[in-house]
Write a protein that binds this DNA or RNA. Structure first.
Lengths: 213, 213
DNA sequence: GAGAATATACCCAGTAATGGGTATCTATAC
DNA sequence: GTATAGATACCCATTACTGGGTATATTCTC
C-alpha cells in the first residue's frame, strides 16, 4: 500500500506495559505508523488524547480506573473527530454495540496478527470502521429469543399464535379447520398451563416468545 | 503500507460497465491490487468466482438476475473461503445484516473514495471485516421503536396501557376512577384511531410502542 | 393392559366486550 | 360567540368469551 501515505500517529492505551511495548514495537515496523504515546489508565488516555492529538487511539477495554468504553465516550465528547479503536479479548455483542454507540470506529480482538492491526488502523484512518470477523458476526446476530421448550403442545401453539394475531375463536376454528368448541378448549388449556388469564396476557406471551414472526 | 505485500486479485461485479471500468481503473493505480475479472450478472459472478479464484470479490447489490446478496450466499456455499465485499448505495440495516449473515466480509457505500475502497480490500484480505462508518452505525443501532407522536390522547394512552396489561373494562374503570361506560368509549375511540379491531392487536401496539415499560 | 398426553368436541350459565349510536361539560382557539 | 377536542357517561342488541365441567379417539410409554 504505497499510494501516497503520511504517517499515522497512534496513541496506545493499555495497563500492561508488555502489551503496550509489544504492540508498539510491532506497529512501528510499518513505515506509516508512529506510536506517539502510551497511557496506562483511562484518565491518562483522556489527557494525552487532548495533548498529543493522535490520528488513532488504540484502546484496551480493561483499564484500572474506568473501562476503555467509558474513556472512549469521554474522549469523543471532548474531541468528536477522534478515531478510537477498541482492543479486547472479548467478542461479546454488548461490548461491541456499546463501543460503536460510544463512538469507536473499530473493534479488534487481541488474537489477531499485527498486520491485521496495522491494516485496521489504516482503514479507520481513512474513515471506515473495522471489526475482526468474529466481532462483526456477533454484531449481526442478535441473541435468540428464548423459546421456551414448550410447555404448550403443537396445537396449543397454533391456537395461541392465531389468538395473538387478533383472530376470534370463530376465525381460528375456520383457519385451523376445527370446531369453535375445540378452540375454546385449547384456549382454556393454554391459559391453565401458562397461568395467564387474559387475551392481552396471552398476546404478550406470544410476542415475547417469538411466536408472531 | 509496504510491509511485504503480494498482489490482491479482485473480481468486480456490477451491471454498469461505467462503474466496473471506473472502479477498476481507480483500484489498479494501487500497486498491490489487480483486477482479474468483471461480471455483470450474479450468474457470471458465481461462475468467475470459481474459475478465477479471486482473493476478493467486490459485489454490487443490484444485479439483473439476482441480488448481490443472493450471489454472495451461493458463492460462499461453494467456496466458503471466498471474501466478498458488498458495494451499495444503500446503508439500511436489513441489507447489512443480511450481507453479513450471507457471508460478506465488508459493506461499503458507493460514495466513498477509492482510497477507502482499496484500504477496505486490504483489510478484508487480511481477515477482518470492513464497513463504511454510516453502515456500522446503522448496524449497531436497531431502528427506534416508532413512537407515534401520539394520535392517542393522554387518557386513551392510560386506557390502552391498562387494557394491554390484561385488565377488564371493569378493572380499568376502578383503576382510573371512571365508569365502565367511559372505558368502553375510550376503547372505541382508541380502536377507531389506531384502526385496530381487537384486544390482541391493541396489546401488540402497546408493546411495540413501549407503553408497558 | 393401564395410564397419560393430545386432539377433538360438547353443555351450561354467566361475564365481557362490541358497534352504532346519543349526550353533557369544560377548556381552548379563532 | 362559535367550533372543536377531550373527558365523561349512557343506551341497545348482539357477539365473544369464560369457568367448570363432560366425553371420545388415538398414540405412546411402561
Amino acid at each position: 500500500m504505497s499510494n501516497g501515505n503520511t504517517s499515522i500517529n497512534v496513541l496506545l492505551v493499555d495497563d500492561h506495559p508488555l502489551v503496550t511495548e509489544g504492540i508498539g514495537a510491532c506497529l512501528e515496523t510499518w513505515d506509516n505508523i508512529t506510536i506517539v504515546g502510551t497511557a496506562a489508565t483511562g484518565a491518562q488516555a483522556i489527557e494525552k488524547a487532548t495533548a498529543l492529538k493522535p490520528d488513532i487511539i488504540l484502546m484496551d477495554i480493561n483499564l484500572p480506573d474506568m473501562t476503555g468504553l467509558e474513556a472512549t465516550r469521554q474522549i469523543k465528547q471532548q474531541t468528536p473527530d477522534a478515531r478510537i479503536m477498541i482492543l479486547s479479548m472479548h467478542d461479546n455483542r454488548e461490548y461491541v454495540v456499546s463501543a460503536i454507540e460510544g463512538g469507536a470506529s473499530g473493534y479488534i480482538l487481541k488474537d489477531v496478527s499485527s498486520a491485521e492491526v496495522a491494516t485496521a488502523i489504516e482503514a479507520v484512518y481513512r474513515g471506515g470502521t473495522y471489526f475482526s470477523a468474529e466481532v462483526s458476526r456477533s454484531l449481526a446476530s442478535p441473541p435468540d429469543t428464548p423459546k421456551t421448550d414448550s410447555i404448550l403442545t403443537t396445537r396449543e401453539n397454533d391456537v395461541i399464535t392465531e389468538l395473538a394475531r387478533g383472530n376470534t375463536n370463530k376465525m381460528i376454528a375456520r383457519n385451523l379447520d376445527i370446531s369453535e368448541r375445540t378452540v375454546e378448549t385449547h384456549r382454556k388449556n393454554i391459559k391453565r398451563k401458562l397461568k395467564i388469564g387474559t387475551t392481552a396476557g396471552l398476546t404478550r406471551y406470544a410476542m415475547e416468545n417469538g411466536l408472531l414472526s
